[in-house]
Design a protein around this nucleic acid. Structure first.
Lengths: 204, 204
DNA sequence: CTTGGATTTGACCAACTGGTCAAACTCACG
DNA sequence: CGTGAGTTTGACCAGTTGGTCAAATCCAAG
């Protein structure tokens, strides 16, 4: 295992290669379904070499999670309390949809883990996600109280956004199988915009 | 392996116990993450005994899938072309939500499999699901053409219903962690009814 | 160029896992 | 009862997998 002084050129390169490979393999097969050998092959390194950089398979997984969770939550952080309520929420939906299009592996990584009870992620979630959600829900509630958007259950509203957008990444194979040639991401942005505009525009 | 004449009392009981245990274990850990031993313990039988009833782990899994897929699609089958369009869709949403509440393991079983690319399910899906979806989307399109509900992309509409309802089963741990004491299924029915009513009621 | 730390790996191990099998046991039925 | 088919299992096997380690190789700083 590398000493924890400032990382060498090689350490930086290999750690990055391993985490990229780990993302590829873990997101496709889940933690248990992935093997260290697969990740090693994907990264172009030998298995013992991986275990020189990470003490265990588990450590690779948690390192990957903590590296990604922050970026994953960025779209939500960008919700601006000062902006126009409806437009803020619509923009958030579009950012989340972009994430599903551009980073489907990340989405599936989290999906895999949460569906199985999030045994290795609950702590991180209840730390980082919980607070952020409370904060944004409070904002949404003031918007509702001010009559800027229709009144509804803020948490369920957020869940619905996560669910609808991540569905296109997590259930990609099913969606594509059912849509044939058509690219799901062609119509999805408009569909979701319409949905939330009708849902939230006041005086419905 | 039992002969394929009419099953004995013991065969019926044990096959059922095995499939119930398999559902429990596969839905919690995915195919690769589940072990035959776990299923055996859960079923109260020995490992070789399971393999007396099913030739392989794979066979247990596919038997389970094909047994469940039919019931899983029932709520969609019940959509009635003769009924009131908006009410038919709202009722479908509620049926799906009930499924998530009452059969979360089934939902997670499918979710696990599809997130990982549905390697053992794509055939069944493209046979059973594809046709059913086309049929129901055609109905929805006539409803839209007749101005009974707002015009939108029918397939995306169906995806949205699956996504929103199954989210409460598949991401159960996350949802409950974020909602604290409150039961997600208390507010979900009303939330979803409001959402689809606003989305679909004509002249929005 | 030397040298000591950083990096890499072939060989190996113990635990686990899906699956087999012959022997033992149970049960329905005559 | 007795008997043969139906059922159960302990012992076992081969392949896989996470992880170890000593030896070999590489590399950057003096």
């Amino acid at each position: 295992m590398p000493k924890d002084r400032s990382p060498t050129r090689i350490q930086k390169k290999n750690r990055a290669a391993i985490l990229e490979a780990a993302l590829e393999v873990f997101s496709a097969h889940g933690f248990r379904g992935a093997t260290v050998d697969q990740i090693a092959t994907q990264a172009g390194l030998s298995k013992p070499n991986l275990l020189y950089y990470f003490p265990s398979k588990e450590a690779m997984f948690t390192a990957l999670l903590s590296e990604l969770l922050d970026t994953w939550l960025d779209p939500m952080r960008e919700i601006n309390p000062e902006g126009d309520p409806l437009e803020e929420i619509l923009a958030y939906v579009q950012r989340k949809l972009q994430m599903s299009r551009d980073y489907p592996r990340e989405s599936r990584l989290f999906a895999n883990e949460i569906v199985q009870g999030a045994p290795r992620m609950l702590d991180a979630l209840s730390t980082d996600l919980r607070g952020l959600l409370e904060e944004k829900c409070a904002i949404i509630e003031t918007w509702m109280a001010a009559g800027k958007i229709n009144r509804t259950h803020p948490k369920h509203l957020m869940f619905s956004i996560w669910s609808l957008t991540q569905h296109y990444a997590d259930f990609d194979v099913q969606v594509r199988m059912l849509m044939g040639d058509e690219d799901p991401f062609d119509a999805a942005p408009e569909f979701l915009e319409t949905l939330y505009r009708r849902m939230l525009t006041p005086k419905g």
